[in-house]
Design a protein around this nucleic acid. Structure first.
Lengths: 95, 95
DNA sequence: AAATTTGGTTTATATTATAAACTTGTTTAT
DNA sequence: ATAAACAAGTTTATAATATAAACCAAATTT
């Protein structure tokens, strides 16, 4: 039987966010919005879910006078991503 | 920007069904239910969606006296799966 | 100082996934 | 022969999800 897919990661936008964060030290809200093409509202909601699950860490601060929301993947997030990928491969590596 | 993921395939159960069908000549409802672990209701709905999209072909017949629903992947389904996989790889191949 | 822009959050809505309840026909047991 | 249980699905109701529209506060531009 196929492994179940972590529903938190099996979402286009959340997967995109995590996928981006895996490759960088950290990324801010605006960057993630631009890279994913998502609306701010949608991105905000999904970042919140990832953060509440402990998959990412969110730090709200300022860059000069502008608010800036920094996101960074956590170890838990990395591990979850890694399991998700290996589960997913069972579905897509069929030849 | 990341490629969008075909929402018809980006669903755990539908992806499982298509993934199974890719590897075989055809498969019946009961086999798919057992392999996926899905409830009959859920499976019925998802098979219908795949069928309406033209991703699979469904033939209802009988095996002896019992009804038997046979499913088979179509060329369109194969192509969709292949694009889905290559889009997905952008998300998961990050090192 | 009014209008616009920036960086978001909250909330409402549309879509989706899922299982429970149901249907139809078939065995099995009595 | 008939009631009870089972098989193979389908329909429908509900819960969860994704998504964007509407909103807010502060800063910048006109």
């Amino acid at each position: 039987m196929l492994k179940p897919l972590d529903p938190l990661l099996h979402s286009e936008l959340r997967l995109a966010v995590v996928s981006i964060l895996i490759g960088v030290e950290d990324a801010d809200f605006v960057y993630l919005r631009e890279r994913t093409g998502a609306t701010a509202g949608n991105l905000s909601v999904q970042i919140d879910k990832l953060s509440k699950a402990g998959y990412i860490e969110v730090v709200k601060g300022f860059a000069g006078r502008k608010p800036r929301t920094l996101c960074r993947i956590t170890e838990l997030g990395r591990a979850a991503f890694s399991s998700y990928v290996s589960a997913l491969k069972e579905y897509i590596e069929v030849e």
